[in-house]
Design a protein around this nucleic acid. Structure first.
Length: 191
DNA sequence: TATGAGATCAACT
DNA sequence: GTTGATCTCATAC
């Protein structure tokens, strides 16, 4: 039996439940992707979340139904991919930070320009470059092409820690990763 | 190994 | 005008 597809119901829950359960799930975009090994949760009550100060043109998708992609430009250069969670209007999301590359390796290498497999999808910007994600994917449902999402078939050991690259609410341990993965964007601090 | 600059855009003060 | 949910390359130790 093939692994279950993750649909809107999976995302219609708190980010704090969804985020750790995404570790080990499989994500592909247009057939290119791999196993999710690192995510971060952004709750609407969280000062570091884009939605914290209310809807804007950029974050509008976060205020829509769960199970959709929220893509935004980071530092003027990169794209970042998020999965919208919780019931409509609550505006929480999970940032996808790193994948273990499994499908479409040659395509990822071509898009990235750098051959190092460990760095193909280690970080939100790199991941979007490797998978070809741009703002054109903003608002698309995650249970239909080009997206494909499958539940994990094992239960990996999960580690958590503080989120990366933020200054507000920087002490909240809402970053989750697969313990020991060599494809993380940065190592987790040991206990 | 570690720090620093540059790229470049939208939200915010 | 400043600040990011970042990455790469260069230079210094």
């Amino acid at each position: 039996m093939p692994p279950a597809r993750l649909d809107r119901r999976f995302f219609a829950r708190s980010v704090h439940k969804v985020a750790p359960e995404l570790i080990g799930a499989t994500l592909t975009v247009g057939g290119v992707g791999g196993r999710i090994v690192e995510v971060e949760a952004y709750h609407h009550t969280d000062p570091a979340a884009h939605s914290f100060r209310g809807p804007t043109e950029r974050n509008a998708v976060m205020f829509g139904p769960p199970g959709h992609a929220y893509v935004y430009r980071s530092y003027g250069i990169h794209w970042c991919l998020n999965f919208v969670c919780e019931p409509e209007g609550s505006a929480s999301a999970v940032l996808i930070r790193a994948l273990e590359p499994l499908e479409g390796l040659s395509k990822m290498r071509r898009r990235r320009g750098l051959p190092d497999e460990r760095l193909l999808c280690a970080g939100p910007g790199r991941l979007c470059q490797a998978l070809g994600v741009t703002v054109a994917y903003n608002g698309l449902p995650l249970d239909r092409p080009p997206f494909a999402l499958f539940a994990r078939t094992d239960t990996p050991a999960i580690v958590s820690g503080v989120r990366i690259g933020i200054s507000k609410a920087a002490n909240l341990p809402w970053r989750y990763g697969q313990k020991g993965s060599r494809f993380l964007s940065k190592p987790f601090k040991p206990e």
